[in-house]
């Protein structure tokens, strides 16, 4: 039987097998190592944040006490100035009101022994 064709046939020895198997070589550190490293870095960071918070608290304490130690000196200076202005204001009042009968210079409008600073400033 001859039709003039030649049947195509596999190469001698057959085709090579199909490479369907996964071929991914393992590179770099494993999952446990990566997650462990991330956890370690985070742990160090939080530890340092905690340390920093404690230190910040101490810095605030230092700042507060630095101010507390200076309060008396500054208050004393302010008091002298306030007293000076108060006395000057009383002297002005005395001079202005000298003709008014029964005027009490510096009499507080409040019925209390507590110190009530004047809310009026004459410029």
């Amino acid at each position: 039987m001859s039709h003039g064709f030649k049947q195509d046939m596999p190469p001698a020895g057959g085709y090579e097998s199909i490479k369907y198997k996964r071929n991914l070589p393992i590179r770099g550190p494993g999952g446990v190592v990566v997650f462990g490293a991330v956890a370690a870095v985070c742990a160090f960071g939080f530890w340092r944040v905690g340390k920093g918070n404690l230190e910040k608290r101490e810095l605030k304490r230092e700042q507060a006490w630095s101010r507390i130690h200076l309060v008396p000196a500054i208050l004393a200076e302010q008091d002298r100035d306030a007293y000076r202005r108060q006395q000057a204001a009383l002297a002005r009042e005395r001079e202005i009101m000298k003709d008014v009968e029964g005027w009490e210079v510096g009499k507080s409008p409040y019925n209390t022994a507590r110190y009530t600073p004047s809310t009026i400033v004459v410029l």
Partner: peptide
């Protein structure tokens, strides 16, 4: 302010 002038001077 008049009450503690003496103590204030000591402080200063």
């Amino acid at each position: 302010p008049a009450h503690c002038l003496k103590e204030g001077r000591k402080v200063t």
